[in-house]
Amino acid sequence: MPGKILITGGSGLIGMRLSEVLIDQGYEVAHLSRKPDKVSSYKTFKWDIKNDYIDENAISYADYIIHLAGANVAQEKWTDERKKEILSSRVDSTNLLYKCLQNVEHHVKGFISSSAIGIYGNSGDQIMSEESTYGDDFLAEVCKAWEASAWQMRELNLRTVIFRQGIVLSNKGGALAQIARPVRMMAGAPLGSGKQYMSWVHIDDICRLFIRAIEDTQFEGVYNAVAPHPVTNAEFTKKLASAMHKPLVLPKVPAFAINLMMGEMSEVVLAGQRVSANKVLQTGFTFEYNYLEEALESFYEEEL
């Protein structure tokens, strides 16, 4: 069954882990990269989104395309320039792939794209399913445009799957490293009210989910890619401190202080989404890490 998988955003957190897992399972993997000359253990094709260029060999290589590319949302302050970059890196890259798939001979059987649960906006403690109404803040607008660009693939009769990812937990970077830093320095505290929900997923589970979407053709359309048991920010912080064997000493970090530090980007940590995993579970997919404690232990028991 294994075939050739082309990954965009392959050098990112999920892309690197997913590439390893795919290779372990007998797939061939290639990356689409702006800098194909960078030393990489994967076959690499060049693309240049700003100049609308893609190496056509990349498209004719692939049996499946996994589209993870997009500027990091939490890396720097949201200036107008940065916000444009966050949006265009997702939408323009998808449009470029679409155009190329339209015009090049290929044997691509499916297109699997990232999106994010940010599409639901700040939804309080309401449980959000794939059919729930969307938010209207900046991240929700980005996700809507991103998904709309991915949906075009269906016009090409490609099986299209969109995963709305929760907070991806990994000990190699991403959100967990940022949340763990103050805890490690004995300065951990819930953020804002601490009541906002965090819908999370272990990086190995999200990789298994991408592979499942390649192999199982019943996958089509939009799925929430989150573990079945979201927690509040206060619970998350407490469980993280416990997994790291650190005390939680500070009271809550007030929302106004976070706003001062992060500006509009504070919506990433202050907005909450309590997202349902039911649709994925109904496909028969089983999560290796259903509960936050298990996920955190997988990262921190090695450190002890």
Rank of each mutant, 00 (worst) to 15 (best):
G192H: 09
V269C: 02
V21E: 12
G194A: 04
D55L: 03
A241Y: 06
W200F: 06
G272S: 02
D80N: 12
G3W: 06
F256L: 06
E294I: 00
P230I: 02
I65A: 02
P247Y: 10
L18F: 12
V249I: 10
F236W: 04
E155F: 14
G124K: 09
N290H: 12
S89E: 00
C100F: 15
V29I: 08
Q282N: 10
G118M: 03
S60V: 07
I117G: 10
P228V: 13
H229S: 02
D48R: 13
A257L: 11
S114I: 02
D216K: 01
I54M: 08
W47H: 03
D24W: 02
E76P: 01
S149P: 05
P2E: 11
L96D: 11
G70Q: 02
D125A: 08
T44I: 07
G118F: 01
K239H: 05
F163R: 14
K84N: 05
R34F: 05
M128I: 04
K238D: 15
A271M: 07
E264R: 00
L32G: 02
V104M: 14
C207Y: 04
H245R: 11
V280N: 15
V108T: 03
S170E: 14
L292A: 05
I117F: 10
C207A: 07
N224G: 06
G110F: 02
Q152R: 13
G194C: 10
A225N: 09
E301G: 15
M185A: 12
S242H: 11
V168G: 14
K83S: 01
L68W: 04
K43E: 12
A140D: 01
I66V: 12
A148C: 14
N103R: 08
V226R: 01
A180N: 14
E220C: 10
S114G: 06
A243I: 11
R34D: 02
V104D: 07
Q178Y: 10
L22Y: 11
S33F: 11
I112H: 03
D24P: 13
S114V: 07
S88I: 10
G15K: 00
G188C: 09
T8W: 03
T217K: 08
R159Y: 01
K46V: 09
R159Q: 15
A58Q: 01
G110M: 01
V275A: 04
E220Y: 09
F163H: 14
E155M: 09
D55I: 01
L240G: 12
R181L: 11
W47I: 09
E20H: 04
E220S: 07
D24G: 11
G192S: 10
R154W: 03
E28I: 00
C100A: 11
G70R: 00
N72A: 14
N57W: 15
Q102F: 08
Y27E: 05
Y61T: 13
T232A: 01
F299W: 05
Q102M: 14
G221C: 06
L156A: 05
A227N: 03
L101Q: 07
Y98M: 15
F299L: 13
D80L: 08
